[in-house]
Nucleic acid binder design. Structure first.
Length: 273
DNA sequence: ATGGCTTGCACCGCAAGA
């Protein structure tokens, strides 16, 4: 089972990239963030034509998350969750669906702007609510993947210039503490389970030729519960779509889990090559 | 040096992202 997270920075603009990428990378679940569109504008038909079912929660201009699920995979519709239960939030930042018994969460963590700001306080309270909800979810679903744009670079290795970034948004001690509080639940950063190239990042600023200089940060993550982590055989950042024309500023991150997911053959479209 | 791009919205400049 392959699970990918990708902040697309407007699904309207990036739909061609998503479809092209999916054709080359037919993952089981594609978690998207920053849709920046209302639900009535979600491209359900185009994504269905590509062989995927869409689960989403959007809003105008900002935020919005989705999970695209490959046709034929078994989904529990009953426990579809939109946003963090009990956390009063008008920003659409989280969706969860259970795919063949695997709880998959697509989350767009608040950016936070800068430590000390109101947005930063919102980020920390959102992180706190997420923690408590995920803790409960892990009891219900031993196989759980928390994916998304975390807007947190957990380690200095995840920052192109740690000295320059020290104490700033995305790397502050408070944000990193919240990240490791999630890790303390037993979640595993799948990317770090494997040997990776130095200076591996998932986001590069549009400005100052940041991608060309590889001046990035690793803020997009796939965290896995112990039951999934022990079956995880790889995790990789795909930089190729970041080099396409009019790209998202984020790259997709894919975890490969050695799990055979039951496929409903009557439903699965066997598309000719 | 808070600039530097990109997006959406709304109206020709702004907020927000990270």
């Amino acid at each position: 089972m392959k699970i990918t997270t990708w902040n697309v920075n407007s699904l309207k603009v990036r739909l061609p990239h998503v479809l092209t990428w999916l054709e080359a990378n037919p993952v089981d679940a594609l978690c998207l963030q920053e849709l920046k569109l209302t639900d009535d504008k979600f491209p359900v038909a185009e994504i269905a034509a590509a062989g995927y079912r869409s689960f989403f929660i959007g809003q105008k201009t900002y935020n919005g998350v989705a999970i695209l699920v490959r046709d034929g995979l078994e989904i529990d519709e009953v426990d579809l969750i939109r946003n963090i239960p009990g956390f009063d939030d008008h920003q659409q930042r989280l969706i969860a669906v259970t795919i063949a018994g695997v709880r998959v969460i697509s989350a767009y963590f608040p950016n936070g702007q800068a430590p000390g700001t109101e947005k930063f306080a919102y980020k920390l309270s959102w992180l706190n609510a997420l923690h408590d909800w995920v803790a409960a979810e892990m009891q219900r679903y031993p196989q759980l993947a928390l994916t998304g744009d975390f807007n947190i670079a957990p380690d200095d290795r995840d920052v192109h210039d740690p000295a320059k970034w020290e104490g700033q948004n995305l790397v502050s001690p408070e944000e990193r503490a919240a990240f490791f509080k999630l890790i303390d639940l037993g979640l595993v950063d799948s990317f770090r389970r494997f040997e990776q190239a130095e200076r591996s990042f998932s986001w590069w600023d549009y400005r100052m030729f940041a991608f060309r200089r590889n001046a990035g940060v690793r803020i997009d993550h796939v965290l896995l519960s112990p039951a999934l982590a022990e079956k995880c055989v790889g995790c990789a950042i795909d930089k190729t779509p970041r080099a396409w024309e009019q790209p998202s500023d984020h790259a997709p991150v894919t975890a490969d889990i050695a799990l055979t997911v039951p496929v409903d053959r009557t439903d699965a479209a066997l598309t000719p090559l």
